[in-house]
Amino acid sequence: MWLWNKIKQLAISFRAGKVTLGYPFEPRPAPEGFRGQPVWDHTRCIGCAGCANHCPARTIFLRDICQEVRILLYDSSRCTYCGRCADLCPEKAITMSQNFELATDNRQDITQTIELFMMTCQRCGRCYDLEIKNYLDKLSSLGYRYDCLEVRKVIHRATADFSPDMLEKTSSYQRPDSLEK
């Protein structure tokens, strides 16, 4: 009985043969619909902050560096690839790509930064998208944000209200050469 069981087990093991894949020497493409690295299409992004406000892992940051320029920074090092950003984007500017080979020793490799040119609203003094159309009042976003891009931390409701001081500060703002120190 014991021997018969062992023979059966041998048969199962032999029938299965070699199941280990040749990866990474042979490529293994991800299936269709895979949630890999999200990619932003800067021509479509309207800077509405929908993705930043709904990211469960808080990996998407926004800051208006001056009256006309809004920066969106995506830091993939903590991303869980849930794909909520892609679901929620009203302009379908985000696609979850097939790319999953993201291991790196340089954080900058997996960071995406978009500079968005915005226009100043004459009524409230904040900036809004000028190229496509204004979605701001249709979106119930949590309010404007002034996230710290250097330490990559969300600053909640920091600029929920427009402050004239900030406007004054930003009027003499020089755009930095690079965002990373």
């Binding site: 087990q9 199962i12 093991s13 299965a16 199941v19 991800a30 299936p31 269709e32 619909g33 895979f34 949630r35 690839y81 794909g83 979850m96």
Partner: peptide
Amino acid sequence: FMQSWRIREKIMWLAEKITGN
């Protein structure tokens, strides 16, 4: 261990196809 995990791998690939992970 080896054989049940080999069978399990089919389920994992199936889940990847359905849900994206």
